[in-house]
Design a binder for these strands. Structure first.
Lengths: 362, 362
DNA sequence: GTGAAAGCGCTAACAA
DNA sequence: TTGTTAGCGCTTTCAC
């Protein structure tokens, strides 16, 4: 396997079309100031020879690498892959991000870095120096990591922050977690629930706080109290079990619970079952994320759907638009989450059949 | 955003260490003929300056791009991503392939191409010309597509064929589907089943045939007939429903069914339920693939586990070894699948409690 | 064992 | 509007 050269280069095209390299380059890059006639001639040669520019060479010569890096948390991502519980975050990112990249001649490269590592900067620099990506897509919990954003800024690399609201450099994109939590709460309230519990996610993720805030806001707007209705989890199944146990053991337990992700809500389902509660007759459940498994539980879970693919697609578009010098919005992009009602949420028991000491009246 | 240059180049390292560019290059590439002393000095400068070679430049100069392409079927992959049924093939490839790449300073890039497209060669050439990958990993149904393998061969690009047994150029890797099907069949036979049905996958995939062959072989070895026990599917849920209906409607229906993938087995579970059959009391089920959802069905499915991550890791290692001029095996690599017993398979009813006209005796 | 020179395929800057 | 020139950062070849 010797020195492998490109079989068809810009030089061949130039020769075939009888023009200079530069003209071919201009056509490839859709630059203005090329006569339609010329353009057609070059285009024809490109087609004829099956020419495709080498992105390595494009990077060397110019300022574009046609590479976008999707940065994910190493530990969490690998754990998800290994456990095979159906978390499809990366797949959805690829669905939205990769396909959008492809439309523009870009490639998406998934990179994993360790959030907790003290040398996170070195890890990231390694990827940046090696690939020289045109942009980086940050995902939680990296999206608001100042070590990362500062470094990217410093190197003049455009980036998108998924699940971030802070303004500052980089594009902020959010699925409006607060509104999503409100949606979930209102859905349950409409079913007649008054005691709606909430299991919070890891405090390491900003979005955990937003979700709690949305629930609080909705409860307040509905005139409902939240005492004893909030439990802390960390997104893990085990933490979900503990949180559920706490909520269900209270004096005046909730008749509905919102879990901040599918794992914790699933854990709640289990705990409730073990206590002889029927879902949804005795306890309604609403989950966050809508990963594949929630369609296969019994009953399937009502859930907040995160439009990850859509957000990733928007992130890619923003990065490419910026690179191309096109105008980009200043405010955060909001791609709202939605709620899919399934079997785990149902009308609350009425006072008649509810053996509760609650004095609330519908 | 002007012309972005590498912040630390080989030149800086050379200057810092007081050596020539070439010596630094030799150290980076772990070439022989460098004095340990020299090597240490250069290494120190590299660390100090935080130097990381640009892979674009490495590709331009030499013959390596440090890129490996994982080629997947576009239609199927996108459908899987969109449907969110938990298929985690790509994730498992990334788990094995990407992490192994990272260990060697390589990157894995996922590419989708259309199997059915008449211009599949152009699609693939586009990726090859643009990325100039050091290797390509072919997955079913591309693994034995001659259009693809010939093209890769012609361009001197090493490649691995996952799920292939044919020898020829490229590394063949198999999870021994035939043996896996035998395993599944024997598992059911040990539970006392004599009428073991099989739902075949799409004929477009070679492995579908191997699985059928394994089942046939096992049945023959056990002295069991296969009349009316084979149904054809195409890996889709709907085809699974049809196949299950056919098998269960026969005069002498199976007491156990092996589905060639999870979707079809799930469909069988549904159809059986609709007919009032209890799983596993009336019908045992064994599935293929072990995607996440089979852990969450009721009962969870006994399944053949495909070691996709492991195979992808081996594929990457083979490609890198070949690139490095290290010796590589000539025969196909076999990474055997295994069986995980779960709730969907149980002992067959004995003659006593079986309202069947079967005359078979255990 | 080490260094100097040439060139990979492309684009930016400038000239025509 | 088009062409020419000079690199980008690295590796290869070949000298020393």
């Amino acid at each position: 396997m010797g020195r492998r050269r490109q079989s068809v280069t810009i030089r061949h095209v130039a020769a075939d079309a009888g023009v200079s390299l530069q003209t071919v380059s201009r056509v490839i890059n859709k630059e203005p100031n090329v006569r339609p006639e010329m353009m057609a001639r070059v285009q024809a040669s490109i087609e004829k020879l099956g020419y495709v520019p080498s992105i390595a060479a494009q990077r060397m010569g110019g300022s574009r690498s046609y590479l976008i890096v999707a940065l994910n948390d190493r530990e969490r991502t690998i754990a998800d892959w290994r456990s095979r519980q159906g978390t499809d975050w990366v797949d959805q990112m690829l669905l939205g991000g990769m396909l959008t990249c492809a439309e523009h001649g870009y490639r998406l490269i998934v990179e994993l870095v360790d959030t907790h590592s003290d040398h996170i900067e070195r890890e990231l620099m390694g990827a940046v120096a090696a690939l020289q990506p045109d942009g980086v897509i940050l995902t939680p919990p990296h999206s608001e990591n100042v070590l990362i954003t500062r470094l990217l800024d410093h190197h003049g690399i455009s980036f998108a922050r998924i699940g971030s609201l802070k303004d500052g450099s980089g594009f902020a994109l959010t699925m409006d977690d607060e509104r999503a939590a409100r949606l979930a709460t209102e859905h349950l309230a409409e079913l007649g629930h008054r005691r709606i519990g909430f299991i919070a996610g890891s405090t390491e993720y900003e979005l955990s706080g937003w979700r709690v805030a949305g629930w609080r806001a909705a409860m307040a707007a509905l005139g409902l109290g939240v005492d004893g209705l909030l439990a802390q989890g960390d997104f893990s199944y085990e933490s979900g079990r503990r949180a559920a146990a706490t909520l269900l053991s209270s004096e005046d337990p909730p008749t509905a619970i919102i879990g901040s992700n599918d794992q914790m809500t699933l854990a709640t389902l289990e705990v409730a079952r073990e206590r002889g509660l029927d879902i949804p007759a005795d306890l309604s459940l609403v989950s966050f994320d809508d990963t594949p498994i929630v369609r296969f539980t019994h009953p399937p879970l009502t859930a907040i759907v995160q439009p990850i693919a859509e957000v990733a697609a928007r992130a890619v578009e923003l990065i490419i638009a910026q690179k191309a010098g096109r105008p980009t919005p200043g405010e955060p992009i909001v791609v709202p989450a939605s709620l899919v009602a399934r079997g785990s949420s149902a009308p609350a028991r009425t006072l008649a059949d509810q053996p509760s000491k609650s004095l609330l009246r519908p």
